[in-house]
Design a protein around this nucleic acid. Structure first.
Lengths: 73, 73
DNA sequence: TGATTAAGTCAAGGATGCTTTACAATGAAA
DNA sequence: TTTCATTGTAAAGCATCCTTGACTTAATCA
């Protein structure tokens, strides 16, 4: 799942550490998000959207709709 | 973090199992989301938004902006 | 009454998100 | 050249998300 974090951060001339502090997470978390190591939790996604004053959909790209099976009950 | 899952599901007369199957997750996951046990991952939130043809922000309520500390570096 | 469906819950385990500490590589600037 | 800021990465650990399997309760209905 891609995101526009690095661009949004560059537009504001913020370091990863700056953004991390503004969001209340560690710098490594920002780095992991930007380098695609993993996706943020939904609460963190909301924080990011609020900080940049954008909708979550404007920052994070829809995933490829992995077709999984949950054969239960 | 509250959500409108139960209402959206009721509007369509779907069971939790129906919704789970449509999303490719287990029924217990839907139940947990509706009963506030935890929040969905961002990818699952996107799937839910796509299914109901709504923005994530229209389904999930912003959290209370817990002020946490990340004293790192 | 007995069968079925829907919803709620629990336990155990695997997968993912996030932390701290630490170190390496790069580029800019003195 | 040395220093400094920034970025990338790794390991270990804890928290959260999601799974399967199983059980309970309530409502509906033949």
């Amino acid at each position: 799942m891609k995101n526009r974090l690095r661009v949004l951060r560059a537009e504001r001339d913020w370091s990863q550490a700056d953004l991390a502090q503004a969001l209340g997470v560690s710098r490594q978390t920002i780095n992991a998000l930007e380098t695609g190591k993993y996706d943020p939790s939904l609460p963190l996604a909301f924080k990011i959207a609020d900080l940049f004053e954008l909708a979550i959909e404007q920052i994070f790209e829809r995933p490829n709709a992995d077709n999984q099976q949950a054969t239960n009950d």
